[in-house]
Measured scan of single mutants.
Amino acid sequence: DAPDEFRDPLMDTLMTDPVRLPSGTIMDRSIILRHLLNSPTDPFNRQTLTESMLEPVPELKEQIQAWMR
């Protein structure tokens, strides 16, 4: 099983494109984008959230890719 820090906190699946929300939570980009289609909010604190506020986490993405090899 993947380490917890590699798993999306909402869907508990392996992240492939991790992004940091303004709240500091790291999620998979595809999952948070799907959530934003229904509700333009951070799913953990209900603060306003837009796609432009998502910050890529390239170092975590590299760690996940290395773990998958």
Rank of each mutant, 00 (worst) to 15 (best):
D1L: 14
D1F: 14
A2H: 08
P3I: 05
D4E: 14
E5L: 12
F6E: 01
R7N: 05
R7Q: 05
R7I: 09
R7T: 07
D8I: 03
D8E: 03
D8G: 03
P9K: 07
L10M: 11
M11H: 09
M11I: 07
M11P: 01
M11K: 09
D12A: 12
D12R: 15
T13H: 07
L14N: 02
M15I: 08
M15W: 02
M15L: 05
M15H: 01
T16L: 14
D17K: 00
D17M: 05
D17I: 05
P18M: 02
P18H: 03
P18S: 00
P18G: 02
P18E: 00
V19D: 00
R20M: 09
R20H: 04
R20K: 10
L21N: 02
L21D: 01
L21K: 00
L21P: 00
P22H: 04
P22A: 04
P22T: 02
P22N: 01
S23M: 04
S23L: 02
T25N: 11
T25S: 09
T25K: 14
T25E: 08
T25V: 15
I26L: 04
I26Q: 01
M27T: 04
M27Y: 05
D28C: 08
D28I: 09
R29V: 06
R29P: 01
R29Y: 08
R29H: 06
I31M: 07
I31L: 06
I32N: 00
I32P: 01
L33R: 08
L33E: 08
L33T: 09
L33G: 04
L33M: 13
L33V: 11
R34I: 10
H35P: 00
H35L: 13
L36Y: 02
L36C: 05
L37A: 14
L37V: 11
N38M: 14
N38V: 14
N38T: 15
N38W: 12
S39E: 11
S39T: 11
S39K: 07
P40E: 11
P40M: 10
T41N: 08
D42E: 07
D42K: 01
D42R: 06
P43G: 01
P43Y: 04
P43H: 02
F44Y: 07
N45P: 01
N45Y: 06
R46P: 06
R46Q: 14
R46W: 12
R46F: 15
Q47A: 12
Q47E: 13
T48V: 13
L49Q: 00
T50V: 10
E51W: 12
E51F: 09
E51G: 08
S52M: 10
M53Y: 04
M53K: 05
L54H: 00
L54I: 07
E55Q: 13
E55N: 08
P56S: 11
V57I: 09
P58L: 10
P58A: 09
L60M: 08
L60S: 01
K61W: 10
K61P: 02
K61S: 08
E62I: 11
E62G: 09
Q63F: 08
Q63E: 10
Q63T: 09
I64G: 01
Q65W: 15
Q65T: 10
A66T: 10
W67G: 02
W67P: 00
M68E: 09
R69Y: 12
R69M: 13
R69N: 13
